[in-house]
């Protein structure tokens, strides 16, 4: 008596498996690389998504808001999504964006590897993705990637660091999120310089996750173990601010030199006051505007984009701070 329902159930289960197995097909459908037939889609008909790794850091706030503003200037409706440095949340945003048929995604990825799948899904759904600031480890999925030249920026900081320390001394390095390409590029650029000076000794290297509070806590602990430290190199400005505050509470802010990276407005102010020694200006506004322009051009039919476009990072010190402000050149 029960056999027939069981058999039917099995057939139904087998049927249900098929859509799930569909994703395992070996060849993904080719993206349609042709320009839209009419080529004249009214921009105001489209929505552009701006997906940002975290809005907890003001720098990314500027990146996201500038991208949104530029997309709106170009006539699109734009919405900012905050991934809160969580790849699962980022995936959920992409699912919503794909379901809502956005025209393009301006994307600041959370993770160079884990974010690839999201870009791939959007591409498969015919939605072009333009990475901003952070890259994904793929040259085939995003239409273009507008990236800070972190490596060369930190080479410049490394050279200034060695000069400021008289090519000798003990230092601490605070790393960003482990596994993030930016963390590695910045650290590699910095070390490509400072490791050539035998008398510059790194006494501690620890992650503070690009976070100001974590940097404060980590620096406080590390200062206890390394009382004679001369400098702290931080992989971003939020950590530089945290490290500087920890030095102030330990009464060592006058002796220990702090170096950041980003060009955040509070760090520029600190450099102008002679506190933090240097940072690397990353130009988030330039990158965000460029990505929004690319999305608009793509929607209108352009397809010949360079995959990776490095945006130069400039060294900012007390000597040249007058040239910079508000996340861009002072004259802009």
């Amino acid at each position: 008596m029960l056999r027939k329902p069981i058999v039917l159930l099995l057939i139904a289960c087998a049927g249900l498996l098929v859509p799930f197995l569909h994703g395992c097909a070996r060849k993904a459908p080719q993206e349609d690389t042709k320009a839209p037939q009419d080529g004249t889609m009214a921009p105001q008909d489209g929505k552009i998504a701006v997906v940002v790794s975290t809005l907890n850091n003001p720098w990314f706030g500027v990146l996201g808001e500038t991208a949104k503003a530029r997309a709106e200037e170009l006539g699109y409706k734009a919405v900012v999504f905050d991934s809160q440095n969580d790849t699962a949340r980022e995936t959920s945003h992409f699912e919503n964006i794909i379901a809502s048929r956005y025209k393009a995604i301006l994307f600041n990825p959370t993770d160079a590897d884990a974010s690839i799948i999201n870009v791939r899904r959007a591409k498969k759904a015919g939605i072009p993705v333009f990475c901003i600031d952070r890259e994904i480890n793929s040259s085939e999925d995003a239409v273009a990637q507008v990236l800070s030249d972190n490596y060369m920026g930190c080479v410049a900081i490394g050279e200034y660091f060695a000069k400021e320390l008289g090519e000798k001394g003990q230092y601490i390095e605070l790393l960003g999120i482990l596994g993030a390409n930016n963390t590695r590029s910045r650290s590699d650029g910095f070390h490509s310089v400072v490791d050539q000076y035998e008398d510059l000794k790194m006494v501690a290297q620890q992650t503070a996750g690009f976070d100001r509070q974590k940097a404060y806590d980590v620096t406080k602990t590390l200062l206890g173990d390394n009382p004679n430290v001369d400098a702290i190199f931080c992989g971003n400005d939020a950590m530089a601010m945290g490290a500087y505050q920890a030095l102030r509470s330990a009464g060592k802010a006058d002796r220990v030199k702090v170096f950041g990276f980003d060009g955040a407005s509070d760090v520029l102010e600190s450099i102008a006051q002679g506190n933090i020694k240097a940072t690397g200006m990353q130009f988030p506004k330039t990158m965000a505007r460029m990505a929004a322009d690319f999305a608009d051009e793509y929607i209108k039919g352009r397809r010949d984009f360079e995959q990776k476009i490095p945006v130069p990072v400039e060294l900012v010190t007390i000597e040249n701070i007058h040239r910079y402000g508000n996340y861009e050149k002072a004259s802009e």
Partner: peptide
């Protein structure tokens, strides 16, 4: 060569080093 020819920008930087 350009950075676009490398899957990871760190590879481009590594070649420079």
């Amino acid at each position: 060569v350009t950075p676009s020819q490398f899957a990871r920008t760190s590879d481009y930087n590594g070649v420079s080093a």
